[in-house]
């Protein structure tokens, strides 16, 4: 554990709290892509199957439980409790175009070819693109509420901080995982355009609005 990973995990946790709090307080999931949230639930489910097979630390176990529980809670809020506010007309990204290639790639490029490992690899690949339905939704409506922008910024920062963690770990322990690194870089690059808009607009008190 180093400061980069810890702040990365905290950014991830903060993103989830921002999202749940926004939906709960406003009693609405307007502007939130249910499809991205379904993909994240799939990511955590396939990655954290190792909860029952391997133990790393109480911290890891606790965080895995939190990520799993909150991802399903988010889906419940979007698709059940506040279903009427779900903006499904703008949430039209075809998620099979992300799930199937991620699965195919996981079957081809992995560290070991066994069930748990392929699912772990699938979760890494899928996570790198899971935000696309949400970004697609923002681009389709041309704007995002500030709170949604804060959520996206925290969520994007998390993997960017993990990249610093991986550089640090390589320098200090010689540890590296190419699959996670390449996917993490792809994931962070996907947020770059958003990061630019966030820094130039949202932080200056303006609404995140895309140029027409």
């Amino acid at each position: 554990m180093n400061i980069f990973r810890l702040t990365g995990d905290l950014a991830h946790l903060i993103a989830i709290i921002i999202l749940l709090h926004k939906i709960w307080k406003s009693r609405s999931c307007a502007g939130i892509s249910g499809k991205s949230q379904v993909l994240f639930a799939l990511v955590y489910t396939t990655r954290y199957l190792d909860l029952v097979t391997s133990y790393v630390s109480i911290y890891n176990t606790f965080m895995k439980f939190v990520f799993l529980a909150t991802s399903y809670a988010t889906i419940y809020l979007i698709y059940v409790k506040f279903k009427a506010t779900y903006d499904h007309n703008h949430d039209t990204f075809r998620i099979e175009f992300l799930i199937l290639p991620s699965l195919a790639l996981a079957l081809l490029i992995n560290h070991y070819f066994n069930f748990l490992e392929v699912l772990w690899t699938f979760s890494i690949y899928l996570e790198s693109v899971a935000i696309l339905p949400q970004l697609f939704m923002v681009s389709k409506t041309g704007e995002a509420e500030s709170i949604t922008s804060h959520y996206l910024f925290a969520l994007g920062s998390y993997r960017a901080l993990y990249i610093l963690n991986w550089i640090y770990r390589y320098a200090t322990e010689g540890h590296y995982d190419l699959i996670a690194i390449v996917a993490g870089v792809v994931q962070t690059v996907l947020y770059c355009d958003f990061f630019y808009l966030y820094i130039t607009k949202v932080l200056k008190g303006k609404k995140l609005q895309l140029p027409a």
């Binding site: 070991y112 748990l116 993990y162």
Partner: peptide
């Protein structure tokens, strides 16, 4: 266990 060493992150 090799797997533990590989995936000790979240």
């Amino acid at each position: 266990d090799v797997r533990d060493e590989l995936h000790d992150e979240l």
